[in-house]
Amino acid sequence: MELLLALSVGVLVAASVYLMLDRNILRFLFGLALLSNAVNLMIFASGRLTPGAPPLIDAGEYAPTGVVANALPQALVLTAIVIGFGLLAFTLALVYRTFMTLGTVNSDEMRVAEPVDAGKEAGK
């Protein structure tokens, strides 16, 4: 099971790196989303896998009885998913806005803030 998770994390990271090397920032963003999912899976795995034992406290008890899964990594992953969702939504809106304003999603063509000829002008 751990091997399977490790492999899927590896595949996800590889795919995301491939996407993030693209000049199209939308693709970069998709790569980022994949990468954050890969990391979430990794955190999940790093909490050790205990299948079939949800960390639930039985009625009348104050602590779980027997061996249960580690709840902390699940909480961490949940937090990370929520934050990641918010950031992704914001960034997607930002990319859309940028496309509408600048007319491109190619990062090489985005030179408004850093004009190419700034150095040349200084030399004159």
Partner: peptide, 9 residues
């Protein structure tokens, strides 16, 4: 927007 997108990503 131009600078922001690089900063964000």
């Amino acid at each position: 927007l131009d600078g922001g997108i690089k900063y964000v990503l």
